[in-house]
């Protein structure tokens, strides 16, 4: 037993030092008082929370974040599911499927910021799309809402996070025994019947994991929404960012705790649906 604990000790130490303690301190500090020029004053107060929850801006920001989360979740799920389905069940050659899968995953390993700003020359007022449309005469005024709008925010999110849907769904689907599909067809299922009754239920774990990633990434994002909306839209984290600008750590912490609670609640409800650990070890 001792060697087991020794083996898991480094992980535990790192997680404790750089996850448990920091998050614990965030919770603690959220109850402290902020004083100009002094900084954090260790009193117990609920003021930070009361301030936040009575401030309509907070609600607006969360509403906006929730809206983005739902839109992005729907699009990435639709894309992720059908692309994974295509790779697993339509591409006949295994090597081709793996190759195409890698094509989808390679951008994951490149810089998010670069991928985000690379939309500027495409969506901008003088960008590729606008100039193409102007040149062909489809429009005579550049479309303004392509960049620095909710649209460009969603585009960037989908661009960055669809991968997090494709990979787990692909993994689940690849494990489905092909003969199950044939059996369903034998039993008289239509193409949609097979997808609805066999493929979808058996991809449940992948979908849940993908949703978990996408939800937490969008909810916790500040940078995409700031850059891609040109500062017009905010997210739940914008409030945190503003507080930090003024070194108001207690209120930033309170805001962070609220965000954390929401994210953990969503995660917990997803974990209720599937036992992720069991599925992984399977």
């Amino acid at each position: 037993m001792l060697p087991t604990y020794l083996q898991v000790a480094p992980l535990t130490v790192v997680l404790t030092l750089f996850f448990v303690v920091p998050v614990g301190l965030v919770v603690l500090v959220s109850f402290f008082r902020y004083q100009m020029l002094v900084g954090i004053v260790p009193d117990f107060t609920l003021k930070n929370y009361v301030d936040l929850l009575t401030n309509p801006t907070t609600w607006t920001l969360y509403q906006s974040t929730l809206k983005f989360t739902l839109i992005v979740l729907a699009i990435t799920f639709a894309l992720g599911f059908w692309i994974a389905y295509f790779l697993v069940f339509h591409v006949r050659n295994l090597l081709t499927a793996i190759g195409l899968f890698l094509v989808c995953t390679v951008p994951f390993w490149t810089s998010n910021i670069i991928r985000m700003i690379s939309w500027r020359p495409v969506l901008g007022k003088e960008g590729l799309i606008n100039s193409a449309l102007l040149n062909t005469g489809v429009i005579d005024q550049p479309i303004e809402w392509l960049l620095y709008s909710d649209f460009s925010v969603v585009v960037a999110y989908v661009h960055l996070f669809t991968l997090f849907m494709i990979v787990p769904i692909f993994n689940s689907m690849a494990r489905i025994d092909k003969s199950l599909l044939e059996a369903a067809v034998d039993a008289g299922a239509s193409r949609w019947g097979v997808i609805w009754n066999v493929v979808l239920p058996l991809s449940k774990t992948g979908i849940a994991l993908g949703a978990l990633f996408v939800v937490t990434l969008v909810m916790g994002d500040f940078f995409v929404v700031t850059v891609m909306s040109g500062g017009l839209s905010g997210s739940a984290t914008s409030g945190i960012f503003n507080d930090l600008q003024f070194l108001n750590y207690p209120r930033a912490a309170a805001n962070a705790v609220i965000l954390l609670i929401i994210v953990l609640l969503i995660a917990a409800s997803i974990f209720r649906l599937v036992d992720v650990r069991k599925e992984l070890v399977r």
């Binding site: 996850f19 937490t216 916790g220 992720v276």
Partner: peptide, 19 residues
């Protein structure tokens, strides 16, 4: 704990670490 560390928003962790 590891899974939680994976899904906690990066900014929250950033604040926690600096504090």
């Amino acid at each position: 704990t590891a899974i939680a560390s994976l899904i906690v928003p990066g900014l929250v962790l950033s604040i926690g670490t600096i504090v």
